[in-house]
């Protein structure tokens, strides 16, 4: 299992896609911080000394779990697309063990993506305060907790994405379905059935990342639900992989 995990992590490190996701996420967060800083308080180049404004800057990384879900869908779907799953299964014929190794690799990769996002957001926010000569008023502990939440949400989000990709098996279809659910279905559900929408993946990642701010759902409940989604989706992917013939 450890050797399989090493192989899976090496797979992620040796393709450009992984670095494109990390770079793209970083650039997106820099853009978000810049725009938030430029429009703080509802005015152009407004003051940044308000704690809520600073908190928003430092937690700009909360978008990263959504990106991690999309990244996760590629884990199994890409292997099936390029038929590299054959060489993977020739090394370890246990399909359940292969999916388990991929699941752990997705948790690690998601966490790293979240950590990069948290770091970039922190640096960008600190730069924004430095450039505007604003003293920090946000509590460091709150920023740290939100950062840990973001890392956890990104990690669990990548696991969920892996499972979805493994069940759908088609890379383009998996990414398309995930984007459709995250960007269209969930917002629609949020306006029509807000109680249900809270428990959908995107909402859960937001709650975990932002420590449940603004909702009645606790961070731990949201994290448990997100972990449940990830485990169920990945188990479904393992069952799917076990049942298919690789022709």
């Amino acid at each position: 299992m450890l050797s399989q995990l090493r192989g899976e992590l090496l797979k992620l490190a040796t393709v450009r896609t992984t670095w494109v996701f990390a770079l793209g996420t970083s650039l997106l967060i820099v853009l978000v911080v810049t725009l938030q800083a430029a429009t703080a308080g509802g005015e152009l180049m407004g003051p940044l000394d308000d704690a809520a404004t600073q908190s928003a800057l430092f937690t700009s990384s909360t978008v990263s779990p959504i990106i991690a879900i999309v990244f996760g869908t590629l884990g199994l779907a890409t292997e099936l697309r390029h038929h590299t799953i054959v060489s993977t299964l020739l090394v370890d014929a246990s399909r359940v063990r292969v999916v388990a190794a991929k699941g752990v690799a997705a948790l690690i990769a998601g966490a790293v993506l979240g950590a990069v996002a948290v770091l970039v957001a922190a640096v960008a926010a600190a730069l924004a305060l430095a450039v505007t000569s604003t003293a920090p008023t946000v509590a460091a502990a709150d920023v740290a907790v939100a950062g840990l939440g973001t890392i956890a949400a990104a990690s669990l989000g990548a696991l969920f994405g892996l499972g979805v990709g493994g069940v759908l098996r088609n890379q383009a279809l998996a990414v398309g379905v995930v984007l459709l659910v995250l960007l269209a279905v969930e917002p629609l559900a949020g306006s029509l059935l807000p109680a249900v929408a809270t428990w959908l993946p995107s909402s859960l990642t937001t709650i975990v990342a932002e420590a449940g701010a603004g909702t009645d759902t606790s961070r731990w409940a949201a994290a448990s639900a997100l972990a449940g989604y990830g485990v169920v989706a990945t188990a479904a992917a393992a069952v799917t992989l076990r049942r298919i013939d690789l022709t």
């Binding site: 192989g7 090496l10 040796t14 060489s87 090394v91 370890d92």
Partner: peptide
């Protein structure tokens, strides 16, 4: 052609070697 097109030949084998 069962390779990831964006991975080098050497890295393809490194992945297999690590797993094995």
């Amino acid at each position: 052609d069962a390779f990831h097109p964006g991975r080098s030949g050497r890295d393809h084998l490194r992945v297999l070697a690590a797993a094995a």
